[in-house]
Each structure stands twice: as C-alpha cells, then as structure tokens.
C-alpha cells in the first residue's frame, strides 16, 4: 500500500490551537522480538498528537497495530524508541489518567455490576479503611454515584445485582463504560468496544458514546475497523496502514489519513444523513482497497 495521503474529502480544518495536547507521540518506534534475534516492527517513526477534547477514531485493518497503539498510551506496551507523553508527562507504568474499554473481558466476571462499578473508587479507599465509619459513608456515596452512572448508560437499578454473564453483550459494554467513567478519566480508550455487538445494539451504543462526548468533552480515542462507525463518531479521523517493504514484510504502521471532521458537534442522527460522511467513507474505502469493513449500519435506534 502506498503512503500517499487520501485527497481531502472535506476542507482541512486546523486543529484548535486553544486545546492542549493530551497524548503526544514523537518519533515513536515499537518492535517486538520474535525469536532468533529477529524483531517485528509495529511502528517506526510515528508522530501523532491528540488534543484535549477530541474524539479520535483510529481506523485500520486488523493487525496493523491499533490495539498496540492503545496499549502504548495505557503504558502496557513500552515504545522501543521515541517519546510518549500524556498531558506533558512521560508515560511510565500503567497510566491511571486513562479509562479502558476493551472489546472482550471488559468486566470482572466474578463481581456483580455494582461491585464492578465500585471497584475503582474503592481501590482508592485502601483495604483497611473499608469498615471504618468514613469508609462506610464513602461506599454509600459510591453506590449512589454508581446507580446514577447505570441510569446514564441506560441500565436499570435492578441490573446492579447481576453478574456480567447474565447481561447481553451490549449491556456489558454499557457497564464497562460506566465502570471506566466512575474514575472520571481524562482520556477514554475504547478498543473495538462495539465490534462484537449486533448492528442495532451497536448503533445504540454509538449514539450513547457520541452523546457522552458532546456533553462532557472527554478526550476519547476510539479504535475500530469499521469505516462507517469511524466516520459517524469522530471529531478527528485517523487511518493507520501498515507499510511493507519490497518483500512484503511489515516495516511499521503509518498515518495514511488524518482528517478533522468539522460537523462533529451535530447529533449522530444528523451526521448520518450528511452526504459528506458517505463521501468520506467512500474515499477511505477506495484508498484502503477494502481492507476494512464497510458494512452499512442501520439507523441509530431512536432513544
């Protein structure tokens, strides 16, 4: 795949100068040892800055390194070279400024919904203060907040006592988002969070996340391999593509398209109707040679 950028489907908007950088990657390289002294290059000289308040959708074919990119932001995978900083601080160890919603295993299966939600806040309490007077009142507040979060995510209070395996896939992801939000993360990282859901549930979840972003302006980095999903949700759309050398071996993913979406503020329903979105999707499809899924999504459920 060539490295030429996709001709802009929309007028280029400059990134808002007012907003601060949230994630900065400078000349980042990541290589995994694959035995016999060889390495596999996932990223090479990657430069990317994500700004505070952006809803960044990262699109790319399976295996191009999207999850790995998120894991680097999380501090789970350490870059081999280059600098990675979050709000100006170099990443060192797992990053607690981030909320994480993976595609699978997003909830603790041994805890009820309520216990899942309370897990984060109660970690701050420490093991011994749990049964003190202050601890008990703190836990009461956490419970109240958790119930509010559940409601915000469209779940009922009666779901609080259920175990994750008693919930549908969509409800599980709602709880997972609520769980991450309990810690008021500065950056929300979602890794194919809706990929396992059926199209209708998925559309509902998309409007949920989009509304959440419109209301709170939390920085969201949303990884997907679905072009429509990316085009509907993003305030900035980044397409990653794996570059290959003459022999076809991967030599690191690069940014193939970095596009600000100017009508990000509009509701999801309004965005879905915009011809520019369809145009954007088409252009991405053409340039990626159908590398990622373009299955049309049904209209968002009215909620």
């Amino acid at each position: 795949m060539s490295a030429q950028p996709i001709a802009a489907a929309l007028p280029e908007f400059p990134v808002k100068a007012a907003s601060k950088p949230a994630v900065e990657m400078a000349a980042l390289a990541l290589r995994f040892p694959v035995g016999r002294g060889q390495t596999r290059t996932i990223f090479e000289n990657l430069n990317l800055t994500i700004y505070h308040g952006e809803f960044v959708c990262i699109l790319g074919e399976t295996g191009c390194g999207k999850s790995t990119l998120l894991r680097m932001v999380l501090g789970e995978d350490r870059p081999t070279e280059g600098a990675l900083s979050i709000f100006g601080q170099p990443v060192n160890g797992i990053n607690r400024a981030c909320g994480y919603v993976p595609q699978k295993y997003s909830l603790f299966p041994d805890r009820t919904v309520m216990q899942n939600l309370a897990f984060g806040p109660e970690c701050t309490l420490g093991p011994f203060k749990r049964w003190t007077h202050r601890g008990r009142s703190f836990r009461g507040e956490v419970r109240t907040e958790a119930l509010a979060r559940l409601k915000q995510m469209g779940l009922q209070a009666t779901d609080a006592a259920k175990y994750p395996h008693q919930l549908s896939g969509g409800m599980q992801q709602r709880v997972a988002i609520a769980q991450a939000l309990m810690m008021k993360p500065a950056i929300l990282l979602m890794d194919e969070a809706f990929s396992a859901l059926d199209p209708n549930t998925r559309a509902g979840m998309q409007s949920l996340v989009h509304e959440l972003w419109r209301e709170t302006r939390t920085t969201i980095i949303f990884v997907t391999h679905n072009t429509h999903e990316a085009a509907y949700l993003a305030s900035r759309l980044i397409v990653l593509a794996q570059r290959r050398n003459e022999t076809g071996a991967p030599v690191g993913a690069e940014v193939m398209l970095d596009q600000i979406v100017p009508f990000a503020e509009e509701t999801l329903a309004a965005r879905r109707r915009r011809p520019e979105v369809a145009d954007l999707v088409q252009r991405i499809e053409r340039h990626s040679h159908g590398a990622f899924s373009a299955a049309e999504e049904p209209e968002a459920e009215s909620r």
Partner: peptide, 28 residues
C-alpha cells in the same frame, strides 16, 4: 486476559489488589 490486569490498573488498583482481588479471585 491481560485486559483484566490493565483494566484493574487503570481503575487505580495496586499490585496487591490486581494479584489478589482480580486474578486470584477469578481463578479460585
């Protein structure tokens, strides 16, 4: 799954909470 460990850390759990509260409890 590694996701569970990473998730635990992002939610503010310490090493002991991840090892005992998440991993041990799950595999018990």
């Amino acid at each position: 799954p590694r996701e569970q460990v990473v998730k635990g850390f992002t939610l503010g759990a310490g090493n002991a909470q991840v090892a005992y509260g998440i991993v041990l409890k799950q595999i018990m």
